[in-house]
Each structure stands twice: as structure tokens, then as C-alpha cells.
Design a protein around this nucleic acid. Structure first.
Lengths: 213, 213
DNA sequence: CATGGAAAATCTGTATACGGTTTTTCCGGT
DNA sequence: ACCGGAAAAACCGTATACAGATTTTCCATG
């Protein structure tokens, strides 16, 4: 009972493992290997890998695909996009928030706090993924939500690394708590303002890592 | 001397023609057809079509790929994105403007004026494509420019139709002239403001077509 | 003329094959 | 031990084939 086709199953499998940080920067992805692992021929694996590549999860090399190592300038470009889009999206989310989404976010923040206590970067990463998906899912402008999802994908690996720097972890959790409070009150203005703060804080933290002096 | 591989050549070919509005809403894209047109086998054509689909330029159906059919609500969603992104992008463009880009835009406005005089909607459409590509090409934040290009493609068909309504044509040209003046002066603030006006005018015009009463 | 349904055509997904190119291995000469 | 270069391996792009699913065609029946 295979629900979808092999290509999509391989894609889902790989993207989930990439997102969870299961691969390192020196892991190589070759269609034959991936195919063997999932028991298919080259083609579905190849399709999945090429899609991941065009979406920015992987970069093609002359010998297989590897995780991208993004330059600082591209990451800063994404921060600019985030400043422009996410405050508005958060405001829309506050207007359309549901009890179900709130519950998911409450849970994600709780899990994130536990991860913070355990100094578990990847776990906090997962929790903040869940948090973000929850509020994005109630943004009434689906096109806007999709635009946000698209660029988030591209900086995923960087975020994973960033989240291993212990000093930023409390900031992330505090930002989520602040946002969650605004969502709970269905306060669109506060949600937008706090999201802008959150993004800017992230940008400042990132810029600090660029100039460690 | 084929510089790149077939897959990318087919992709480039198709995306260029899609962008230029060469296809209609009832055109169907089937890998075999596309392959025959470009003289290859199915696989490169298939790869190109699947990529276009994951990027949102095409929509997969049970029988080939088609251009995405947008409802009014989705178009309004894109207007919201435009309001958020394009003012900033225009401001950045004003900062990075080059003589070459200015020349292209001057020419596009001239051509647009001729198209307006001739009541030639499609020609004005082409001219405004050129105009937009010119300023987008000097936006320093490439990620931002790409995000804008992405949703523009999705509303291409609608724009083609809108541009056949004669009353909106002068508005478009006036907006471009206003923007061009700001670019010429390298005035980032004015460029941002005028772009916001331009987008809002377009949105209002579109809303008017929804309620003809 | 409408309708049901079988047959044909069409399209997708997947497998396999093969040539060309790049990388790695490895062996012989210095 | 250190190259240089040839042989081998690895990998990518592309072509072709075929099975399964879906749509369309078309004919027979009411």
C-alpha cells in the first residue's frame, strides 16, 4: 500500500533527514546509493535529488550532491526578505489563529524549553520548525505563507548550525513565547511588531557571528 | 557546440516562453511533445517540466502539465506580496541603477507609449516586462529579486488579460514614467514610494474589475 | 438521440542500458 | 619516496522500453 510514487517518497525521506540534521557537510549523495537504500532504480532517486538541488537543499557537484554551505551575503539577503514578509504574515496569523494551532505552538514552546534546558540544539530546531509551521498554517494569504516557506528551506542548514551556538537558544525561545502571547490574544499589531523584533534579533545575532572580534 | 545539457536548455526555452506569455491557459505540456519540439528524448523534457512544476510555473495534471489557473483571491494575495516586497526592491534598484539599465527602461517606456497610442495591449505587456526586468536586474538583493520574479510568472496570464482593458493602459505607463524619473535621480525613497503607489493603483484597478456594478 | 461500456490511445512512473566525462587508482620511471 | 600518466572506476546525462493508470474514442444498445 504505497500511498505515493517512489520519487516523492524518496524526496520526503531525504528532506526529513536533511532537516533533522542527519547528514554532515561532507556527506555525498549519489543517485545509485540513494536508490539502493530505498530499493528503487536510479531514476526516482535522481528525480528526488535534482528537486532537492533546485530547491536549495542540496548543491550538485561533479561527483554527487552535497549539503550547501551558504555564504553570509545570501543569508543576509534572506533576512531582508524576512523583515519584509514575516511581520505581515504574523499579523494575519494572529487574525486567523485557531485553538488547534495555538495548542501546537504551546506544545512546541514547552518542548523547546526542555531542549534549551538540555542544551539540545537540534531538538530546539525541530520545535521551532513545528512552531513556525503552526502559525504559517493559519496565515490567510497562502501565497505569502508559501513564499516564506520557500526561503526558509534555503537557510535550513545554516539555522541548524546557528542553533548549536548556545547563546542564541534562549533568545529564540523568548521570541517564540512573545509571539505566542500575541497569538493567544489575537493581537495582530503586537504579533507583527514582535515578529519584526524577532527577525531583527536573529539578524543581529547572525551578524555578530560574522565579526567575532 | 551545445554549451549546457539538454535538460537545462529545454528548461530555459520553456521558462522564457512562459514568461513572455507565449502559451495560453488551455495549452497542455506533455513530455513527449516538448521532447519532439526540441529534438530530444522524453527524459530531459520530463526533467524540465517537473522542475517547472515544483517551481510553480506549471501545474501537473493527470494528463500533462498546464499553466496555473488563478482565481481572484489568489491574485489579490499576490498583490499583498507585491505591496510588501516591491517598494523595498525599487528602493534598492534606485541605489544600484546603471546607465545600461536606465537606457533599457527609457526605451521600454518609449515603446510602451507607442503601444498605448496603438491600443496594443500585448505590446505594452512586452514593454512592461522589459521595464521590470531592467530594474529587477539591478536589485542588489538577488534573493529578493528572485522572489518577485517567481510570483510575477504566476500572474502573467491575468496581466495579459488585464492589459487588454484599455482604461488601465495609461495608468501603467504613467506609473512607469514616475518610477523611471526616480531611478534616473537615484532617489531610493521616491522609488519606494512610487512603487507602492503603482502597486496599489494596480490592485484597485483589479478590484474594480471584480465588481463591475 | 442518449448512454453504457469496452477497446484504443495517451500519459506517467520506473527500470535498464550505454556513451562520455571526470575522478581515482595504481604502476612504472626517475 | 615522488611524480607522471595510463588504466580503471565512478558518475552523469540521455535514450529506450514497458507496465499500470487514466482518459478518450467509438460502437452498440436502449
Amino acid at each position: 500500500m504505497t500511498r505515493q510514487n517512489l520519487r516523492d517518497r524518496i524526496y520526503d525521506n531525504l528532506i526529513q533527514r536533511i532537516r533533522s540534521g542527519a547528514f554532515g557537510l561532507d556527506d555525498r549523495f549519489v543517485d545509485v546509493m540513494v536508490a539502493a537504500e530505498l530499493g528503487s532504480s536510479r531514476m526516482p532517486a535522481r528525480d528526488a535529488l535534482m528537486r532537492l538541488a533546485t530547491e536549495g537543499y542540496l548543491v550538485p557537484t561533479t561527483r554527487g550532491f552535497v549539503l550547501p554551505r551558504l555564504g553570509p551575503e545570501e543569508i543576509l539577503e534572506v533576512f531582508e526578505l524576512r523583515r519584509l514578509l514575516e511581520p505581515r504574515a504574523a499579523a494575519l496569523a494572529a487574525q486567523g489563529i485557531t485553538d488547534a494551532a495555538l495548542a501546537v505552538m504551546e506544545r512546541a514552546v514547552t518542548d523547546g524549553a526542555a531542549a534549551l534546558a538540555a542544551r539540545d540544539g537540534p531538538a530546539l530546531f525541530t520545535a521551532s520548525e513545528i512552531f513556525r509551521n503552526a502559525w504559517l498554517s493559519v496565515v490567510s494569504n497562502r501565497t505569502l505563507a508559501q513564499a516564506i516557506r520557500r526561503y526558509f528551506v534555503q537557510v535550513q542548514n545554516v539555522r541548524l548550525i546557528t542553533m548549536q551556538q548556545e547563546e542564541v537558544l534562549p533568545v529564540i525561545l523568548a521570541g517564540q513565547r512573545s509571539l505566542l502571547a500575541a497569538y493567544r490574544e489575537r493581537d495582530a499589531v503586537a504579533a507583527g511588531d514582535r515578529m519584526l523584533c524577532f527577525v531583527i534579533e536573529g539578524e543581529i545575532a547572525f551578524r555578530r557571528t560574522l565579526t567575532p572580534a
